[in-house]
């Protein structure tokens, strides 16, 4: 059999195909979603998840794992709803400080050769503690410009779709198409080779962590734009969602093998899986399990395809 579709292409097609299958199922279950209004509601909460997934992707790209992204996004949400709203300068400084803190974490993990799982797990409690200090009781208000951006109603195409596409393409160009991006990814694939070629792995790790921090900040701001106010626990789920999103979108835990477009698709797929199960009227006790089953199904398909790839 001549194979015009190689496993490599199949592998790349898997995330968009799973998303399409899920979308068709949702349209069939609930035709109301097949409209501008419906798509907007269905997808708007996927935007902050996609941003958090991109943040996680930068970390995974350099063979690390971030278990604090959910707490970090919560902290950003709390700062956005309080300081950024009441005292914009202080808010901007605090958020910039958080990005710098992330870069510092990257340096710490690299210099002391610490396992990132331990460092970020510890930091998740720090972020959560800070979030409670900033906002002891749920509340605050989203700055008007973020609120109006997140509730933007552009003609024809709903905002969440535009935002997701722009995000995926922008990061794709940055990381996959630019010379700089290739060096960054190389640090995950073969750090020794890069170090010998004269690149500073420390600088690369700091850059990747700073980028993760930056997208984590964007995620928190987007989330507050949707919810209008914050809560110290608002985004704790994002830690696991973001890791699952990257993997679902074709990323690997090691080797600098990631895909920004895939990550965004993975995040949207996970967000839609929740809606799909809810439209099915599945008992909530089963929903988490069913979400896991969807994940296993897609990953199992991927393993099958990868085996085909190896056999060649």
């Amino acid at each position: 059999m001549s194979a015009p579709v190689s496993p490599r292409v199949l592998r790349a097609l898997l995330p968009p195909l799973s998303l399409a299958a899920l979308l068709i199922a949702i349209f069939w279950l609930q035709p109301r979603t097949m409209s501008y209004f419906g798509l907007n509601l269905l997808l708007n909460l996927a935007v902050p998840i996609a941003l958090a997934t991109i943040a996680q992707m930068f970390i995974l790209c350099v063979n690390e794992l971030d278990l604090s992204i959910g707490a970090f996004v919560s902290l950003v949400a709390c700062i956005t709803a309080t300081w950024l709203h009441d005292a914009p300068l202080l808010g901007v400084l605090a958020l910039a400080g958080l990005v710098a803190a992330y870069a510092g974490l990257g340096a710490l993990i690299h210099l002391r050769n610490l396992p990132s799982i331990v460092v970020t797990l510890g930091m998740s409690f720090v972020w959560l503690g800070l979030a409670v200090l900033v906002l002891p009781t749920p509340g605050g208000a989203a700055p008007d410009y973020i609120r109006s951006l997140m509730t933007l109603k552009p003609p024809i195409v709903p905002f969440p779709i535009i935002a997701s596409v722009v995000l995926a393409l922008a990061v794709h160009v940055l990381l996959m198409r630019s010379a700089w991006g290739t060096v960054l990814r190389g640090a995950g694939g073969n750090p020794q080779a890069l170090a010998r070629a004269g690149w500073s792995i420390l600088r690369i790790k700091m850059t990747m962590f700073a980028l993760a921090g930056f997208f984590g900040v964007l995620s928190g701001m987007a989330l507050v734009g949707l919810t209008t106010s914050a809560d110290a626990n608002i985004a704790l789920r994002y830690t696991l969602l973001s890791i699952a999103g990257v993997i679902l979108g074709g990323g690997e835990f090691v080797g600098g093998r990631v895909s920004p477009i895939g990550a965004v698709i993975g995040a949207v797929t996970l967000a839609l899986a929740g809606s799909f199960l809810s439209f099915l009227r599945l008992n909530p006790d089963w929903q988490i399990g069913a979400q896991g089953a969807i994940l296993i199904l897609v990953l199992a398909l991927r393993v099958l395809i990868s085996r085909g790839e190896v056999r060649r």
Partner: peptide, 8 residues
């Protein structure tokens, strides 16, 4: 949450 769901 008394505030976190206001957007929805």
């Amino acid at each position: 949450s008394p505030e976190g769901l206001n957007g929805a």
